[in-house]
Amino acid sequence: MTSPVVIADDQPVVVAGVEAALNTHRFNVVARVNDTDTLIQTMAEADCEVLVADPFMPYGRHPDGVGLVRRIRDMRPDVGIVVMSRLGNLPSLRLMLDLGVSALFDKRASLRDMPTAVYAAHIGRTFLSPAVRRALRDMDYGNGLGGTSNPLTQRELDVLRAYAQGMSLIDISRLMERSIKTISRQKRTAMAKLGLKNDAQFYQYLANVRAGLVDDFMSAGYDDDPDVPTLLEEDDDDDEAYVATKRRGGAARKARASRKGRT
């Protein structure tokens, strides 16, 4: 008995390669799609048991990435999903696992392992390409989830939550009465602990938090022990001086404006 499979990727050559790999085993490819709109329509109509897809497809009106996976899981909870992707956005891949994706397949890996990944998704088991497994393990250790003492600090959590609320760097600096330099360093340190390599990944992560795809930054853990020093404590004196300077500057500007108003 064959298992019906849908393959989705914006590159037709990738779809053809996956289909060739599956045809040597007991899988029947019933649909091939290259954009998010066609994929949503296909999943609503096709009789399939496994979806093999790169969810980061730039074409179509429907959102790609984590949002696309969540939509498909809501539509078809009965379908096993194999996500094939490069390892450029590990936090998103981690979220996809949390949403119920069965397999994460490294696009750089040989397709000879694709039938194993599809079979795992078909029977409800998990498959991770070796490179994916190593990358997620390293990210977990970086987040403090792998037994290291490098979790997010309470200050870093406060900065992340402020960014998630749409505040700017300057706004956060004023709210927390810390220098821009300190807030910026807290942001960079938190990004490193979360496995986020650039601002694009950082703001995508924040979007996922606002969309409810991540419950909270607390999932990365944090250190609430006041006796444990952080990298930011060394700037406390500078921060207080910075805030005092800003307050004096603000008071001076108000005084000048008042004098001009009386003249």
Score class of each variant (00 low, 15 high):
Leu93Tyr: 03
Asp113Glu: 14
Leu51Phe: 03
Thr38Val: 01
Ala31His: 02
Ile123Asn: 10
Val69Trp: 01
Arg71Gln: 14
Leu39Gly: 02
Val118Thr: 11
Val69Pro: 00
Val52Gln: 08
Ile81Leu: 06
Arg26Asp: 12
Thr42Pro: 03
Met43Glu: 07
Thr126Asp: 11
Thr148Ala: 14
Val101Glu: 02
Ser129Ala: 10
Leu160Gln: 13
Leu104Arg: 04
Leu145Phe: 13
Ala53Gln: 10
Gly147Val: 07
Ser102Met: 05
Val159His: 12
Asp140Phe: 07
Pro91Cys: 02
Leu111Trp: 10
Glu45His: 11
Val83Ala: 03
Glu45Tyr: 06
Met114Gln: 09
Tyr119Gln: 15
Ala131His: 13
Asp54Leu: 07
Arg112Val: 14
Pro151Arg: 13
Ile72Asn: 03
Pro91Glu: 05
Cys48Arg: 04
Arg70Pro: 01
Phe56Leu: 09
Val33His: 02
Ala117Ser: 11
Asn34Phe: 03
Asn150Phe: 12
Asp74Gln: 14
Asp64Ile: 06
Ala135Phe: 03
Leu128Cys: 06
Val69Asn: 01
Ala135Ile: 04
Val66Glu: 01
Val52Thr: 12
Met75Leu: 15
Cys48Pro: 06
Ala20Asn: 00
Asn28Tyr: 00
Phe105Leu: 09
Gly142Asp: 09
Val33Ser: 00
Val159Thr: 13
Gly146Gln: 11
Tyr141Arg: 15
Leu87Thr: 02
Ala21Gly: 01
Ile72Thr: 08
Met57Tyr: 06
Val101Tyr: 01
Gln41Arg: 14
Arg26Ala: 10
Leu90Lys: 01
Gly146Val: 13
Ala109Val: 02
Pro151Asp: 12
Gly80Pro: 04
Ala131Phe: 11
Pro91Asp: 07
Phe56Ser: 11
Arg137Tyr: 13
Asp140Gly: 15
Thr24Ser: 05
Gly144Phe: 09
Ala21Arg: 00
Thr126Glu: 14
Met139Phe: 07
Val50His: 04
Leu95Gln: 14
Gln154Val: 15
Pro77Cys: 12
Pro130Val: 11
Val79Ile: 13
Arg112Thr: 14
Arg26Trp: 00
Tyr119Ile: 11
Thr116Ala: 14
Asp106Arg: 00
Asp106Asn: 10
